[in-house]
């Protein structure tokens, strides 16, 4: 599985959505991406990439695109 596929899967599992809903997706943009859903997403991503995200990055993680930027610049996950 590529990193992009793992990343997408973490979102789809956390928010029960399809891949075609991911582009442009924002925090609190859908019902399930609330603060509790955000924790589920972070747990999925940490498991998928074997990382521990810093609190500041969890707070900054405001969209599907921003998440990729954070993971690639700070956690060495290449997409």
């Amino acid at each position: 599985m590529t990193n992009k596929e793992k990343y997408n899967e973490a979102f789809c599992n956390a928010f029960e959505i399809n891949q075609d809903q991911l582009n442009g997706l924002k925090y609190q943009g859908i019902k399930l991406w609330d603060s509790v859903g955000h924790m589920t997403l972070v747990a999925n991503l940490e498991d998928a990439f074997d990382i521990m995200m810093e609190t500041d990055d969890i707070i900054d993680f405001s969209s599907y695109e921003k998440g990729m930027e954070i993971l690639s610049t700070k956690y060495d996950v290449q997409f």
Binding site: M39, V42, A43, E46, D47, M52, T55
Partner: peptide, 10 residues
């Protein structure tokens, strides 16, 4: 607690 609770949440 922030770090450990994430382990416990999983």
């Amino acid at each position: 607690t922030q770090g450990v609770s994430k382990i416990m949440m999983r």
